[in-house]
Simulated scan of single mutants.
Amino acid sequence: MAIGFIANTASVLSLSIGKQHPEIIGKDINDSDGHNHHGITILPVPVLKGTAPLLHHLREQVRPYEHQVTVVDLIDTTRTTQTYMEYSKQMLSTPTEQLIFCGMALYGPKKLVNKFTGNLGLLR
């Protein structure tokens, strides 16, 4: 997968998790000259690697835990659709077993998130 697509996927997933959990963004801070800097995440955000089939399997494994873990996933139609409306239509018309995942973000209790991601290596 191209590095630009990986970076875009990580950005989209991060923005979506941030929307769902604004409490993970720190307060704005000033530098020594008094210039304001907007808050950034107060948590580490590891970017892990995995294949599309592995992500599909992971997505199904985490489904029963969605009351405890926020899951944001991204399917490959983002590469071919031009608008969110097109993306929505494609998602709606594609059977779940045919979805091809290109990324996923999980947020929740560390122990539970590690249960699903502990065997994934860091993207380097």
Rank of each mutant, 00 (worst) to 15 (best):
residue 3 I to E: 11
residue 3 I to T: 11
residue 7 A to H: 05
residue 7 A to Y: 11
residue 7 A to M: 04
residue 8 N to S: 07
residue 9 T to M: 02
residue 10 A to P: 00
residue 12 V to C: 08
residue 12 V to F: 04
residue 13 L to K: 00
residue 13 L to M: 11
residue 14 S to D: 08
residue 17 I to S: 02
residue 17 I to Q: 01
residue 18 G to K: 07
residue 18 G to P: 01
residue 19 K to Q: 14
residue 19 K to E: 12
residue 21 H to M: 03
residue 22 P to M: 10
residue 24 I to W: 04
residue 24 I to R: 10
residue 25 I to Y: 13
residue 25 I to L: 14
residue 27 K to T: 13
residue 28 D to I: 03
residue 29 I to G: 09
residue 29 I to D: 13
residue 30 N to I: 05
residue 30 N to E: 14
residue 30 N to P: 01
residue 30 N to F: 15
residue 30 N to S: 14
residue 32 S to V: 15
residue 32 S to H: 09
residue 32 S to W: 05
residue 32 S to C: 06
residue 33 D to T: 08
residue 35 H to F: 11
residue 38 H to D: 07
residue 38 H to F: 06
residue 40 I to V: 15
residue 42 I to W: 08
residue 42 I to F: 09
residue 43 L to W: 06
residue 44 P to G: 09
residue 45 V to D: 04
residue 45 V to I: 13
residue 46 P to M: 06
residue 47 V to D: 04
residue 48 L to G: 04
residue 48 L to C: 08
residue 49 K to G: 12
residue 50 G to D: 15
residue 50 G to F: 02
residue 50 G to C: 12
residue 50 G to I: 01
residue 51 T to A: 04
residue 51 T to N: 07
residue 52 A to Q: 15
residue 57 H to R: 15
residue 58 L to W: 14
residue 59 R to A: 13
residue 59 R to V: 07
residue 60 E to K: 13
residue 60 E to S: 15
residue 63 R to F: 00
residue 64 P to L: 03
residue 64 P to Y: 11
residue 64 P to R: 02
residue 64 P to V: 05
residue 66 E to K: 10
residue 66 E to F: 02
residue 66 E to H: 08
residue 67 H to G: 06
residue 67 H to S: 09
residue 67 H to I: 03
residue 67 H to P: 00
residue 68 Q to E: 14
residue 69 V to I: 15
residue 69 V to K: 04
residue 70 T to P: 01
residue 70 T to N: 11
residue 71 V to H: 02
residue 71 V to K: 09
residue 71 V to F: 00
residue 72 V to W: 01
residue 73 D to M: 10
residue 74 L to V: 05
residue 76 D to K: 00
residue 76 D to I: 00
residue 77 T to I: 05
residue 78 T to G: 07
residue 78 T to E: 07
residue 79 R to L: 15
residue 79 R to I: 12
residue 80 T to A: 07
residue 80 T to D: 09
residue 80 T to C: 06
residue 81 T to A: 03
residue 81 T to D: 04
residue 81 T to M: 11
residue 81 T to V: 06
residue 82 Q to V: 07
residue 82 Q to Y: 04
residue 84 Y to G: 11
residue 84 Y to T: 12
residue 85 M to F: 06
residue 85 M to C: 03
residue 86 E to W: 02
residue 86 E to R: 05
residue 86 E to I: 03
residue 87 Y to K: 03
residue 87 Y to D: 07
residue 88 S to E: 14
residue 88 S to Y: 14
residue 89 K to P: 01
residue 92 L to M: 12
residue 93 S to H: 13
residue 94 T to F: 13
residue 94 T to A: 04
residue 95 P to W: 08
residue 95 P to S: 08
residue 97 E to T: 13
residue 97 E to A: 06
residue 98 Q to F: 02
residue 100 I to R: 08
residue 102 C to S: 06
residue 104 M to N: 03
residue 108 G to L: 03
residue 109 P to Q: 11
residue 110 K to E: 14
residue 111 K to V: 09
residue 112 L to Y: 03
residue 112 L to T: 02
